[in-house]
Design a binder for these strands. Structure first.
Lengths: 220, 220
DNA sequence: GACACTAGGTCTACGGTGTAGACTTGTCAA
DNA sequence: TTGACAAGTCTACACCGTAGACCTAGTGTC
């Protein structure tokens, strides 16, 4: 038989699985070589055979997230509509990992799915009338905006710890509630929406529309 | 004389000064109570008399950055133009601290300059035709986008360590240079712009225009 | 002037982190 | 059979945040 059962060998992919799980619900800072090593019955230093250092491990998490992007097939809709669905696909992949979305940025031009996404985005932008260089710039900024859209998702944040989330909401409510309505009439009257948007889907819808509308509007 | 010379007392404002300086050129992770304590000839634990914990210290840095925002006076330009200059003022304050810009987000609705900025932004958005709640949502997203614009400023990054920056650029160049021009025609031809935008001012100009154009475009 | 209170320091200690360097061991090719 | 090499181990170092007990100088009050 080729596969030894329960070989002592460490599987880097499984380590990334664990790291991703930890990072997802305790944040990337909570990922530690010692914790991972314990989970895999191995010495912390063993991990260094597979990951140069912690940054390298986090990069692997970023790659893993990017691998989940499923590109929509090109079709004959208008370039900006296609761009919208392309970016939606990107955001959809990130939404599963709100605290980790920024790990993808430095990997986008390195990992294959990121490159495919970028190439396609540039294609559509050029089709929309941008020069290649402008497309690069605009594309980069769109990606950054969308990543920050996900990392600052006010609903997903700390969804793993509902009581912490509740406490944070209460603190915010108290802080805004203490403001003088004369001095800050709009903030106080928009307090509800500022503390937490009504719907998560709407939040993402606005975010994506904003980015695409910006791109459409900036082109002359 | 009222002021004792060189009193042994710790001045929290000066501690924040040091922390800001360290964070600016080594990143917020490099700020440590021990380092700060040493710089102020004091025990690390002394700092806990003035800052609840490290998060509290970082919040103080965020407040400090927000305090630098100088709001433009209202005038009779169109709402979107006024919004543009308002957001430009925000970005200008952040640009001095590219690695630290996100510290401001959680402080914006707490610290006074942040509240003033937010109130004014809501005002302009409402003036532009948004409902108060939509204004809140759109405003939040604009702020987030601009913060991430600054934190991902590809030029400022590691400007303190020019050789590290050069190395990072070389790595990127090599990585993109190795790509197949048949598979990624646009990425390879836009490699220059993707690695590093031509001009920093242009980078910020595009970023701001994108955000404002998005807001203008989304309103129906 | 005596006295209690307290803000703001000190000291010690705990449990965590990344990771360098030298070592051992299991596996496979020649 | 014998090396070589990849992979895991062990030890150690220099950091980190911070809990808790303690000290001490200054201040306001009787």
């Amino acid at each position: 038989m080729i596969t030894k059962e329960t070989s002592r060998r460490l599987d880097p992919e499984k380590v990334v699985d664990s790291a991703l799980a930890i990072a997802d619900d305790e944040g990337p800072a909570a990922v530690s070589f010692r914790k991972l090593a314990a989970q895999h019955d191995v010495t912390p230093m063993a991990l260094y055979r597979h990951f140069k250092d912690k940054d390298d491990l986090l990069a692997a998490i970023g790659d893993r997230i990017l691998a989940d992007v499923v590109l929509p097939a090109p079709n004959d809709e208008r370039w900006d509509e296609q761009l919208h669905t392309l970016l939606t696909a990107f955001v959809t992949a990130l939404r599963g990992h709100p605290r980790l979305a920024d790990l993808t940025l430095p990997r986008i031009l390195i990992t294959e799915p990121g490159l495919a996404l970028s190439e396609r985005a540039l294609e559509l932008l050029v089709q929309g009338g941008f020069t290649v260089d402008d497309a690069a710039e605009v594309g980069r900024q769109a990606i950054c905006s969308l990543i920050s859209l996900v990392t600052t998702d006010p609903i997903a944040r700390e969804v793993s710890d509902p009581e912490a989330r509740e406490a944070s909401l209460r603190r915010k409510r108290a802080s805004l509630g203490a403001l003088s309505p004369e001095r800050y009439p709009l903030i106080t009257s928009a307090a509800g929406a500022l503390i937490c948007p009504e719907s998560r889907d709407r939040y993402y819808e606005i975010g994506l529309d904003l980015v695409v509308a910006g791109i459409r509007g900036i082109r002359e």
